[in-house]
Design a protein around this nucleic acid. Structure first.
Lengths: 119, 119
DNA sequence: TCATCACCAGTAGACATTCTAGGCGAAGAG
DNA sequence: CTCTTCGCCTAGAATGTCTACTGGTGATGA
């Protein structure tokens, strides 16, 4: 996953993709393409999900029992794998969400006092 | 860098350590140990900086010209390398700060509607 | 004086995740 | 029939972190 700046494509934030995928599947089952597009759209195109990151992530999530795949037909009448959140996946999403907020909060505490505390 | 939960040590957020180090050195030059402790303290011990992550990061930052090292004596009268932010490093910090906020904002947009939009 | 501890710097190797850069099969359009 | 688009997938490289060390040197106290 990278951010979508003009040309400053940055590799960023290892480990958040799983959370984002789980979050997306909380709304409804979806196939790979749709998941990627949903994440991109919902982030106002700040995040870009590469296929080479997405599919390994999906398989990882399956291995861990957090999602499951079902064969189906896409909106465009093509064969597609629909991924669905499992109960374990739902729990995991809650865990990762908490963890993220804790982490982001910690970063904020370090970065924030910049203006006032600078010596 | 990992979060400091009781036993759920998580590997988290590749790439943020550099930003945190730069931010810490914005306040004042410091040696490795001091940088690590400052990050841990300022994050209320949520973040833990491992030496095996810190020193490679420091050397990386030097290679990129964002910080520079000077030999000196620590508060405990021990030989230590004091790392100082360079002008380039200051610019870089601004870049990374912006990037982080953009990224965290994007994550938030995806994660937020959880409560209201859940089907 | 000698042992021990805390402080400070550093490295090697494993590991996980991401990215680049492809490939492949099938539906639909012309 | 050909071309494009959709959807799934993988190999290999790059990156950054973690675990688990090594090593040197002040300070402390027996």
């Amino acid at each position: 996953m990278s951010t979508g700046d003009e040309k400053e494509r940055i590799e960023f934030l290892q480990g958040t993709l799983d959370m984002l995928v789980l979050r997306t599947l909380l709304l409804a089952p979806a196939h790979g393409h749709a998941i990627a597009h949903a994440i991109e759209r919902n982030s106002d195109d700040v995040l870009q999900v590469e296929q080479g990151s997405l599919y390994p992530a999906l398989h990882r999530l399956i291995r861990r029992g957090w999602i499951q795949a079902e064969e189906g037909l896409s909106e465009n009448n093509r064969r597609a794998k629909f991924y669905r959140l499992t109960p374990k996946g739902r729990d995991q999403l809650a865990i990762e969400n908490t963890r993220w907020e804790k982490f982001a909060g910690a970063i904020a505490r370090i970065m924030r006092p910049a203006e006032s505390e600078a010596d």
